[in-house]
């Protein structure tokens, strides 16, 4: 993870040529509509970052600068958000982002074994902090705090989908047939 103090000389891993980075017109229109909803432009920053991250997968330096310009702010005002809020990514992530709940009720139900199994099967280090992505760029695995679904512990979020009462067999099945993940149904609360 690259987490430099706010100097904005570019995040090493996130360095891209300025040329190759553009926001498609439809996305910009969507973002303009988001910004227009708020009485004060700056309020839209989290929503704009969500929209950019959804499209690009992560928030590059260009994305940060673009957002700042859109909202009439200095880049630092956006950079300090990206470095604070855990959901924002400063480097590319895998096709499937797996978030395992680390917190009490899920831990009691075995979420730490799930996390360890996932890491071991994917060649990642279960003791390392923060998100880790496999070399082939397919999976990103991380521990997250309580996902507010503790009664069906252990829970795991994969991209936008919530999986409940996850077993070790379930983990095996994801890894052997990840195609099922892309097609998985949207999260259902239970």
């Amino acid at each position: 993870m690259c987490r430099r103090p706010p100097g904005l000389d570019g995040c090493r891993k996130g360095k891209q040529t300025a040329m190759g980075w553009t926001v498609p017109q439809s996305l910009e229109a969507e973002i303009d509509a988001l910004v227009a909803r708020y009485p004060v432009k700056r309020s839209a920053s989290l929503m704009v970052l969500h929209a950019l991250q959804r499209h690009f997968g992560w928030l590059s330096q260009q994305a940060i600068e673009w957002t700042a310009q859109k909202l009439g702010l200095q880049p630092i005002h956006i950079y300090e958000l990206v470095t604070f809020y855990p959901m924002f990514r400063q480097e590319p992530v895998g096709r499937w982002q797996i978030k395992v709940c680390r917190t009490l009720s899920c831990w009691l139900a075995g979420s730490h074994e799930l996390h360890r199994r996932l890491c071991e099967r994917l060649g990642l280090d279960p003791h390392r902090q923060g998100p880790q992505t496999t070399a082939d760029g397919r999976f990103t695995v991380e521990f997250v705090e309580c996902l507010a679904c503790c009664h069906t512990a252990p829970v795991v979020m994969i991209n936008d989908d919530l999986w409940e009462r996850v077993s070790l067999e379930q983990v095996e099945s994801w890894l052997t047939r990840p195609e099922q993940l892309a097609a998985s149904a949207p999260a259902q609360a239970s």
Binding site: L104, C146, H151
Partner: peptide, 10 residues
């Protein structure tokens, strides 16, 4: 809703 253990608002 992020107090660990809480899932009522959901």
């Amino acid at each position: 809703e992020s107090e660990p253990g809480t899932f009522k608002d959901r």
